[in-house]
Design a protein around this nucleic acid. Structure first.
Lengths: 232, 232
DNA sequence: AGTTTTGATTTGTGATAACAAATCAAAACT
DNA sequence: AGTTTTGATTTGTTATCACAAATCAAAACT
């Protein structure tokens, strides 16, 4: 009863570049656009417009949008219209609360089995961030994301990773569209995270990450308040 | 401007009652079926078969399945075939770890503002569970679910609730398809949860819930091991 | 003038059909 | 006899079209 084991090797090597459907391409494209601030909070996601700009038919777009709504990256209004969510301060706090739980856990897990080269790569990203000139908010956000996910991937928990990704997706538009006063303050937070991971200290890793999220979150909240105050 | 009114009569009368789209109906239907053990782990979800049995076209099914894959309720194989996941022990432990984080947090939150009628309703469900005769696994699971979600809804955090739902969706097939030795042990756990909530003690609520998940999880894991051992 | 009504347009939703990739089974071959 | 090849069938993917509900703008009315 040994059937079809012969082809496995060949096929998997051929399929090295996994078949990517249009569906997935559109989904991934929209996803990264949302995460990197390609759409302003509140903007409508219209099927036909997106389809045209991506040069595909309605269907893949429809599919991708449906998925993004499920993971709360997009929001469906009662009219069945889909928008990029405008995050209120309460919602942001709600997200931060969960982020601290999940990302803290991921950091604690990561501290138990980080490899030296992960530490090295974290340090490299850390240096890049420190050397960032001026208020390059977009770059900062991208590098910050790179840093954090290097930690979370080291946790080796696909479940945690996917849930954390979904949370970042929800706050992506906020980070990229609220003007934030960037200080070098965040750098010390990252340094403490690296140290805790290097020492294999789970408790310290969770604490360092929690503080990083709290501090960063406070800056966002301040920006949110300031953004709401002035005349519109 | 009369185009094609043939089918309108039936449809509009139905739509007067239910306000939801076919899309959502199929999604919700599949969702509850999965959660309540309607499909065995490993079984394939074929679009056309499902469409026929639900009396709809391929599209709503396709859409619903896509969403369920995103929330990990279903798993897409590299062949692009979709199955109900077979949960390994490691995966189950991974899920339990996250459940403790999120559901513990929800319990802690709930303890801060439970209303007396939520407590009353919890007690009612608790009694029902205790009076459950024999090894009625399906009913136990359904009531257990009712109990826990009454707690989580009291947390008043839509984000937490949706993430927790997604986790239950992932373990639903396991609970309903692995024969578990039901004892009245779980009852004491629920009693402690009610007490902690009633006292408004967040720490105790989190602890009680954590212990409940640990104890229950241990029973499942034992069943999983026993289920893997014998000849199939 | 301000409100309502109506008609046209835009939007999401759903069905059908054409297509491509994977699977399976029988025939052909060594 | 066992393996390969081929052809048919099944499965997921995508485009196109038809429809319904919501939206918007202009006309009609009070």
């Amino acid at each position: 009863m040994v059937k079809g084991l012969d082809k496995v090797g060949l096929e998997s090597s051929l399929r090295a570049v996994e078949r990517e459907t249009l569906n997935d391409r559109v989904y991934r494209e929209l996803r990264t656009m949302i995460m990197s601030g390609g759409f302003a909070p509140g903007s409508e996601m219209k099927l036909r417009a997106l389809a045209q700009s991506l040069h595909v038919s309605l269907m893949p777009v429809r599919d991708a949008i449906g998925r993004l709504v499920v993971e709360r990256a997009l929001k469906m209004l009662p009219n069945h219209r889909v928008i990029v969510p405008e995050t209120t301060i309460d919602e942001f706090l709600e997200i931060r609360r969960v982020r601290i739980l999940l990302e803290g856990e991921a950091a604690a897990l990561a501290s138990q089995h980080v490899s030296p080269d992960v530490i090295a790569s974290l340090k490299r990203i850390h240096e890049k961030i420190k050397s960032l000139s001026g208020n390059k908010q977009r770059q900062f956000w991208a590098l910050n994301q790179e840093f954090h996910f290097a930690v979370y991937e080291a946790a080796k928990s696909p479940l945690l990773l996917s849930m954390i990704e979904s949370l970042w997706l929800q706050i992506g538009p906020v980070f990229n569209h609220i003007p934030i006063n960037l200080t070098s303050e965040g750098a010390r937070g990252h340094h403490r995270i690296i140290a805790a991971l290097g020492a294999g200290d789970a408790k310290a890793a969770r604490a360092a990450l929690t503080e990083d999220l709290m501090k960063g979150g406070d800056r966002i909240i301040a920006a949110l308040i300031q953004d709401k105050q002035p005349a519109r």
